[in-house]
């Protein structure tokens, strides 16, 4: 929590978050604070619930117990007097507008060019003037190193290029919080680096980021804090040096050792 100012309100506050799909309990009481400007990397084996937790933060999945707060507002619910009430679909849509998200499968709009993909939300949802949004989109494309691909359709781009466009698309709404859901897991190994480079740049610029990934190297270099999840709970968290260098919990040690064997 080095970057966070003392006493500042957390950007994300999760308390006792429970989530099940049918009888299968995926999250079993998650507590987590993320401070403004902090870069948190969530590690864990497949099925540990880390992606599900990320998707709960912008209410793509609803939770069954506990609460999540983003930027001081409870996600999906509001207090009317002393009664907690579900928000309407529209109010939830409004809440999501300050959160940028990057998906494992990119999910770019295939019938729009890179530039059209990026300006869609700023113009259509945030009602920015088109010209202004396009200028900022070109700036973002330059930042992810794809200036010359503004008019290309997603199918004409490599996986790494598509994911960089997807990152630019998420940044275009000037988000207060960025969520990355395994952004490099669908990429060929030689394309992972270009995406991680862009993310490392962002991490250095004071953006609040939560990154679910299998890239231990990225966690070591870019994270302010590493959260290790297993079996639907946070097993341990702390600075990368602490969690990756000197893991306290046997499950963390097991996970990391498997990883080192693989490399």
């Amino acid at each position: 929590m080095s970057k966070a100012a003392e006493g500042a309100a957390p950007m994300v506050r999760a308390r006792n978050v429970h989530k099940s799909f049918g009888s299968n309990e995926v999250l079993k009481g998650i507590d987590l604070d993320v401070m403004p400007g902090e870069v948190v990397v969530v590690l864990g084996p497949s099925g540990s619930g880390k992606s599900t937790f990320l998707r709960c933060i912008n209410h793509l999945e609803s939770i069954q117990r506990g609460f999540i707060e983003v930027d001081g507002e409870q996600v999906g619910y509001t207090l009317r007097g002393d009664r907690l009430t579900k928000l309407s679909d529209h109010a939830i849509a409004v809440q999501r507008r300050k959160i940028g998200m990057v998906f494992q499968q990119f999910n770019l709009y295939p019938h729009m060019t890179a530039l059209e993909n990026i300006v869609e939300a700023p113009v259509g949802v945030h009602k920015q003037p088109r010209r202004e949004a396009q200028a900022y989109a070109l700036e973002l494309l330059a930042r992810v190193g794809l200036s010359e691909k503004a008019n290309a359709y997603p199918r004409q781009l490599s996986g790494g290029q598509q994911q960089r466009v997807a990152i630019a698309r998420a940044l275009a709404i000037r988000p207060k919080l960025m969520l990355f859901d395994e952004p490099t897991s669908a990429l060929d190994p030689e394309l992972v680096g270009e995406v991680l480079n862009v993310m490392r740049d962002l991490a250095g610029q004071g953006l609040t980021m939560i990154v679910v990934t299998h890239e231990i190297g990225f966690a070591r270099e870019a994270a302010d804090r590493v959260v290790f999840m297993d079996g639907g709970v946070v097993v341990e968290h702390g600075s990368p040096q602490k969690v990756l260098g000197n893991p306290q919990h046997p499950r963390t040690r097991l996970f990391l050792s498997r990883f080192i064997e693989k490399v």
């Binding site: 912008n58 998906f103 869609e120």
Partner: peptide, 27 residues
């Protein structure tokens, strides 16, 4: 239309009608 497309429009806070008009129906 791929489920991920609907998810993307949700994540960007698009209204249902806008998502249909701009993203889902064209595909």
């Amino acid at each position: 239309v791929d489920k991920g497309q609907v998810e993307a429009t949700d994540a960007f806070g698009m209204t249902r009608t806008r998502a249909l008009r701009r993203v889902i129906i064209p595909q």
